[in-house]
Amino acid sequence: MTDFVAAFGWLFDPVNWAGPGGIPARTGEHIVYTLLTLLLAGAIALPIGFAIGHTGRFRGLAVGVSGALRALPTLGLVVYLALITTNITLMPPLIALTILAIPPLLAGAYSGLESVNRSTIDAARAVGMTEWQVFTKVELPLSLPLVIGGVRSGALQVIATWTVAAILPVGGLGRFLFDGLAVQNYPEMLGGSIIVIVLALVVDGLFALTQKLVVPRGVAAGKVRADRAKDPWRAFGITVPGRQPIP
């Protein structure tokens, strides 16, 4: 309990909110690093995932590659890339974290397109849509919740793991952990950890809200109608004790 009191004392100390090493500056660096990592990973993973989900080809290969990338030790990869790269402090962790973010984005992209009902796609083709129109007007809108779910998972991993990258001379919230460890400033370490947790929770909440907002209105309305058809009393907000919804 004393450690948490000291950590919150460190968090609310005005000294720690000023300058290039202050909490706002480090948080901004962490967010920029995370966005840059997700942009690079998305540029690689999303087109490949969409192609796999649309055509159904190479799915087994994608699953295997994703599993192999997930198995890579991030800290070891960061250190290895730092050893073979000279005078570029940000590049090794950026490459390592991009590799870490690719599997969830890739899985979200191809599983999202695969979740679209095949009869819906066949109907779109039957009315004369081109493959590009089928993808942009049917598959992509219907798959967006799962696609964003993959980005959400990748973002949380990247936010958490960028703290490890502070083993190198880079910015971000990991600086509080490693700099605090060097001088045995445990309130700083715990305070930095709390900031990372809060940032991850905020980002997770924003992505959860986005997933709900991108659901097409027709799909959401259809789900509501289906639920009411199974249990018509629910439309009036009435719950009948002991009554099971109609299957």
Results as ranks from 00 to 15, higher is better:
A68R: 00
T85K: 05
I84R: 10
L61D: 01
L40A: 15
A45Q: 05
H54S: 13
L97T: 05
V79M: 14
A45C: 07
T37V: 15
L90T: 13
L90I: 13
T55E: 06
A51W: 14
L90M: 12
L94Q: 11
R70G: 00
I102F: 01
L97S: 02
L40M: 13
L61S: 11
L100C: 07
G64Y: 04
I102W: 00
S66K: 01
L69K: 06
R70Y: 13
L38F: 07
A51I: 03
T37Q: 04
L39S: 13
T86H: 12
A62M: 08
I52M: 07
T86K: 13
L75M: 13
L94R: 07
A45W: 01
L77C: 07
S66C: 04
L40W: 04
L38W: 05
L81F: 12
A43T: 12
F58S: 11
P93F: 10
L39Y: 03
T74D: 06
V63R: 06
R57P: 00
T86P: 00
I95L: 14
A62F: 06
A62P: 03
L77K: 07
P103E: 10
L72Q: 01
F50R: 07
L46Q: 03
L61Y: 05
A45S: 13
G42C: 08
L72V: 15
H54Y: 10
L75W: 04
G76F: 09
A96C: 11
A96I: 11
L38Y: 06
G56V: 04
V65P: 02
T98N: 05
F50A: 14
G64V: 11
A41G: 12
R57H: 12
G64P: 00
T74L: 15
V79A: 13
Y80F: 15
A62C: 08
L72M: 14
T98P: 03
L46M: 14
V78R: 01
G64L: 14
V78I: 15
L69M: 15
T86G: 00
P93I: 10
F50Q: 04
A82K: 08
V79L: 15
T85S: 12
A82Y: 14
P103S: 11
R57D: 03
G60L: 11
L94T: 14
A96T: 09
G49C: 10
A41D: 01
R70D: 01
A82S: 14
I95Q: 08
P92G: 06
G49Q: 09
A82E: 05
G67S: 12
L39C: 14
L83N: 13
A51S: 13
L39I: 15
V65G: 03
N87M: 06
T74V: 15
I88R: 14
A101L: 08
G60S: 13
A71E: 05
I99V: 15
R57A: 12
I48T: 14
G56R: 04
S66R: 02
L75C: 03
L81R: 08
L83A: 14
G56S: 05
T55C: 02
A62V: 08
T89D: 13
T85Y: 08
I44R: 07
G42L: 05
L75G: 02
L61K: 01
A45D: 07
G56E: 05
L69P: 04
L61V: 15
P103N: 11
A41F: 01
L94V: 04
F58Q: 08
R70F: 12
G64I: 11
S66Y: 00
A43S: 13
G56M: 05
T98W: 00
T74E: 09
R70V: 12
V78F: 04
P47W: 09
L94M: 15
I44W: 02
A96L: 10
N87H: 10
